[in-house]
Amino acid sequence: MVKFQHVNKWYGSLHVLREINLRIAKGEVVVVCGPSGSGKSTLIRCINRLEPIQAGEIFVDGKPLSDPTLDLRALRAEIGFVFQQFNLYPHLTVRENLTLAPMKVRKVSRGEAEAIAAKLLERVGIPDKSNAYPANLSGGQQQRVAIARALAMQPKIMLFDEPTSALDPEMINEVLEVMTGLAKEGMTMVVVTHEMGFARRVAHRVLFMDEGQIIEEGAPQTFFETPGSPRTRQFLSKILSH
């Protein structure tokens, strides 16, 4: 589904991604963790080409992203992205947040888009909020709307960049539950998160990044119980200790 081949990326002289090689299969759930500034966001932002790369190649669904004839809109329409800061459209209602892209990109009729929106709001557990504005929702509800907004495009892949890091602790679970549900339904997911409970329960594979490199990867069981690299061990002991 997604393949990184010798991917390198620089911001000026800062080498943020170093020789990334990675394959993500259809239906796979991959959790990415690592210290702040290690390149996790950059890694997933490259998948829908919010960030360009300078060397190597990324394939999504077999298509190389460096192809100059690539239809960027079509690529992004297939990939849902959920941000740490929700980024809902504050001037639109929840329903309008969900119907905008399907109507403008997929040319779905308003009626159909609204029907999809209603179903998705049901699925993320807030069917009664379709006329509310984002500012009137709690953080957890906003993030669930953001997930629903991404799903409204019926993507093949969902990318999450620290979806629960901006939430109050009591709201984290409601968002993780929605994500767990998605994973169970077979969605291909790449999730940057430090929620190690979620990683253990839901991920098929966990990656550890540091200084732009994938230092370690493995099934959650092995990753957490017998981490190979001292840096991984050090990182895990820090985030699991509290």
């Binding site: 919010l50 849902g80 980024n87 892209a101 990109v105 997929r106």
Partner: peptide
Amino acid sequence: SKTQFEAALSTGLTTAQAYRF
């Protein structure tokens, strides 16, 4: 914020549509 714009692009809107809507 720049991520507001990126969120719109991520759903497949073009730059022009993201600005307009």
